[in-house]
Design a protein around this nucleic acid. Structure first.
Length: 502
RNA sequence: UCCCCGAUAGCUCAAUCGGUAGAGCGAGCGGCUGUUAACCGCUAGGUCGUAGGUUCGAGUCCUACUCGGGGAGCCA
């Protein structure tokens, strides 16, 4: 479009004329003046139209402008404190509807999650969703930039894969010219091959898990970045992961401070993220779970949540009486909405409280040899003010390819990185077993078909080297950085168990 | 797969003990020259998720199913 001005350029163009293209996010009319909040890809701008000789031909149309009609408007840029963003378009000289919109389903009022996800294709026009997706784009750029700047080679691993790894129960099966193949849940094994050619490599793509998980941390299709490095030891791998996480966190904080605030994110815990991250062993984690510290954390939680419920109950009483005594309809409505919000918060707290005894029990009775559960991870992460690396898990709960700890071969040289504030596992990684015979025996231990791993064993036959890598989940990381309680808002079209529309 | 909760107007929610289905928003019409979830007046809008059952009477109680939310397991 010739002579088109984007909304984010307007502050530099005060006093000049401008032609905007976009959609009407909100429109209000009051007699002889109309306010149109125009949205384009770069932001929002209020446009003020008065009824006069010049606007007469289109004023009545503009006055009835419906939500999400696409339009173009020309006028003069004015600085005005009353407008969002500090500038607005006034003295309108032209207004044309490009595409009308009737009965746009998403209104400025609150909607439920089911409805919003049914309209996901429209929902991400909304400000909050727009912000999250922009931060996602920055996060992904920061990830690529980190590895590219450090000389890592991007190596694309296949998405169709033969059955490999921990069995096929968690993989999506696809018909491949009559034979079953599976959608990849990791590029790691292929990346190890790449690693022996390029040394420092990474893959970055969608991965697929057919687990029947219905939680706020799970998607069936999500994005994962996996670096792999040759000639490296576990402590160096941890250092790489730490540098990496610091780098992307700082980039997002720098570029999106205001956006994060607008999402309601408390920035203090993010600003606090500095090196070194905590490094604990699985054994330390087990001890922590058994400790008074863990018990006290949960007991304090219980007290705080109970107190919050009591406060909410008190508040609810007041709101109820305010609603009853309210004379104006909008006062009643406002009270009703506050009541609803308080009830929702209360219900969530009730559920959390109901879960606490289970979590206490799980932590106290945790036995060496088991994998850390979600609640266990939450406890560990909440007892630390920075990300925590948990290393050296028992070999039984981890994958066959993880390198045995030569000092104690009940353990493997692996690590998980737990994000703070209870966000849980964001990275999982390990050193890979480089010894041919040990690897072969581990394949046998896991009852895996050796034939399928012949090429993988080749990597140990022809100049094997110590190597390792990790995978970082983009959506979990984004949920953590944005302070979202559910992962499903972090990806444009979330794919979850039983949900593939739109 | 298991456990808990839910489903009432296009949307978000009310409906006391089982007794005539309501509000706000949205939509339509009218009014208003500085609105920010505008406001004021009027109008239309319902097979109370589905199928059975209990009852003089069911949105409300019971059973099954469907769909959704949360959690467990599993994982990033």
């Amino acid at each position: 479009m010739k002579n088109r001005t984007y909304i984010n350029e307007l502050p530099k163009r005060v006093g000049q004329s401008a032609t905007l293209y976009g959609w009407s996010a909100k429109a209000r009319a009051a007699g002889k003046i109309a306010f149109i909040t125009l949205r384009d890809g770069t932001g929002l701008c209020q446009c003020v139209m008065e009824k006069n000789d010049r606007t007469a031909p289109f004023f009545d149309t503009a006055k009835k402008l419906s939500q999400e009609s696409s339009i173009t408007l020309s006028g003069t840029v004015h600085a005005d404190e009353r407008a969002i963003g500090g500038v607005e378009l006034r003295d309108i000289t032209a207004c044309e509807i490009i595409g009308p919109s009737t009965d746009y389903p998403i209104t400025p009022k609150p909607h439920g999650v089911e409805f919003l996800f049914k309209h996901r294709h429209l929902w991400f026009r909304s400000e909050r969703q727009h912000t999250i997706i922009r931060i996602r784009a920055t996060l992904i750029d920061a990830i690529r930039r980190f590895f590219n700047d450090r000389g890592f080679i991007l190596f694309d691993t296949p998405i169709f894969a033969p059955a490999v790894g921990e069995g096929t129960s968690t993989l999506f099966q696809v018909d491949y010219f009559g034979d079953p193949v599976y959608l990849a849940q990791t590029g790691q094994l292929y990346l190890e091959a790449a690693c022996m050619a390029h040394e420092r490599v990474y893959c970055f793509g969608p991965t697929f898990r057919a687990e029947k998980s219905k939680t706020r941390r799970h998607l069936t299709e999500f994005w994962m970045v996996e670096p792999e490095v040759a000639f490296i030891h576990l402590d160096e791998l941890l250092q790489l992961a730490e540098d990496f996480v610091l780098s992307v966190v700082h980039r997002v904080l720098n570029d999106h401070r205001q956006d994060l605030i607008s999402l309601g994110r408390d920035l203090a815990p993010l600003d606090q993220i500095k090196p070194p991250f905590h490094r604990i062993r699985y054994q330390d984690a087990v001890d922590t779970l058994h400790s008074d510290k863990a018990r006290h954390l949960l007991e304090r939680d219980l007290d705080e949540k109970s107190a919050r419920i009591a406060a909410l109950d008190e508040n609810l009483k007041q709101l109820e009486s305010r609603r009853e005594s309210a004379t104006k309809a909008w006062e009643q409505e406002k009270a009703a909405q506050e009541i609803q919000a308080a009830r929702e918060e209360r219900a969530e707290l009730e559920e959390q409280i109901a879960n606490i005894p289970t979590h206490v029990k799980l932590a106290a009775e945790f036995e060496w040899g088991g994998d850390l559960g979600g609640s266990d991870e939450t406890i560990i992460s909440r007892l630390h003010d920075r990300p925590v690396f948990v290393t050296h898990y028992p070999r039984e709960v981890k994958a066959f390819y993880m390198r045995l700890d030569r000092a104690d071969n009940r353990l493997v040289e692996n690590f998980d990185m737990l994000a703070p504030e209870g966000y849980g596992e964001v990275i999982g990684g390990s050193m890979r077993e480089e010894d041919h015979d040990i690897l072969l025996s581990r394949i046998h231990d896991h009852a895996l078909p050796v034939e399928a791993f012949n090429w993988y064993l080749d990597l140990r036959r022809y100049g094997t080297v110590p190597h390792g890598g990790f995978g970082l989940g983009v959506e979990r990381t984004l949920a953590w950085l944005c302070g979202l309680k559910h992962i499903r808002e972090t990806i444009p079209f979330p794919r979850m168990m039983g949900k593939v529309y739109p």
